[in-house]
Design a protein around this nucleic acid. Sequence first.
RNA 1: GGCGGGGUAGCCAAGUGGUAAGGCACGGCUCUGCAAAAGCCGAAUACGUGGGUUCGAUUCCCGCCCUCGCCUCCA
Length: 470
Amino acid sequence: MPRPAFQLYNTMTRAVGPIVPLDPAGKRVTLYVCGPTIYDYAHIGNFRTYVAGDLLRRALKHFDYQVDHVMQFTDVDDKTIRGSREKNLPLREYTAIYREAFLKDAKELNIQVAERTPNATEHIPAMIALIQKLVDKKAAYVSDDGSVYFRINAFPKYGCLCHLDLANLMTGARVSQDEYEKEGVGDFVLWKKWVAADGDVGWDSPWGKGRPGWHIECSALSMEHLGSQIDIHGGGTDLRFPHHENEIAQSEAATGLPFVRHWFHVEHLLVDGQKMSKSLRNMYTVRDVLQRGYSGRELRYALLSGANYAKNLNFTWQGMDDARTALARIDEWHKRIKAAATGATAADESAASLNLFQSIDEAIAQDLNINDLLGTLFTWIRTSNKALDEGTLTPPQALAYLQAWDRLDAILGLGEVAVAIPPEVQTLIDERAAARQAKNFAKSDELRKAIEALGWKVKDTAKGQELSKS
RNA sequence: GGCGGGGUAGCCAAGUGGUAAGGCACGGCUCUGCAAAAGCCGAAUACGUGGGUUCGAUUCCCGCCCUCGCCUCCA
């Protein structure tokens, strides 16, 4: 039976459609996801986007694509400059702190880091070259203040991604009143002229000392690393406008080629039904979540399963508890099925024909339908647990489930992380085993308490004691 | 004003032109020195609303209500 084609919603066309790679061999897929501005710790809303991007990346690999994935770090902008000045650190040192923090948090969430994660400031010459090209083509102009702007009138398709009718924009909404140096209100900055507040941050350019605008970064980095055209470009939904719209304009005005084939946007995370904001005190970082005693994989599960990537996801602590319980159920099953598969040399074909693999393919091929996938998983769990209870599951059948799980988890990224048992806990466990052997239950209970005090939970099963981190 | 996303049991959430996955919570049972956990089973009179099309609509069409976004800082 042929595998289904991987289909993904495309914001540009507003339809779910297959990924058709530019690669003539149809193997390599180029993926660019707009990365964070590293001026502070990223919050869980940011990470929802990156977890979704990771899901996409893993799904592509599941369908045997060779993924070439780039994510930039924005390490120069108003906020990074302000932060570094406040902390009295050179910009590079200041942003390095948050770059590392991001990577650490991403690891906590089992996010596969992109093949390349350039910092924007490592590619200033590419940005200058791109801007020069736009100036040469009269798609950009130098304003009276010495900054360079993109002229959106030079790009008739402007608004195509967001389906905006420029004549219909809400008048006066958030258009700054004082930007009279621009020809049109929609024109956006490509190169920002140095000002005193920038301190020692600045690069020489044909238009004098300054720094790149935000939008040009992604175009320049995408083109430099992946070529003039790419397959998939993604990010948070808020980037659709103006960021991605501007990327299209400046990229296509420069190259004359369609910039991106498939646009992938991730909806926002809400907390307790509300937008995250500092004033509501509901803005959590990954660290905050870990500090509350949850694990990265519990957060990953909550971010993946809370809603399809294209819908708002409401983060709650109740949701984290639900995630914890559901994950524990998966873990229990995994242990059981693994034990049951011991000794099997080959998976049972008839068990495999329960369409285990096919149901994985079908769910994920349909616009990353993660909840359908989880529904399938929990149905396997119930079915195989029942067979285990009844003693009717053979080792080769168990192996079939185990193999299906491995394949599934390559997408979910939820595999249990083995935790080393500290020696002092191991000592108590050994003592307890002896006490239990001697039917000294008073001592056994005492030792259980001692183990709990060290942060571990012990439970008694038919096969002896089982430890888990509490 | 323009454009778009939602409204499915107590909570979260898939999905389909033929009366609806899954998770959490809940109840029963099994297991168990106790505890905890786990497993199995179960219940739920769940598709915002008014029309229309249809043999049949939660699903398609029209209207309405509610809700959340975006419309030049933002994942």
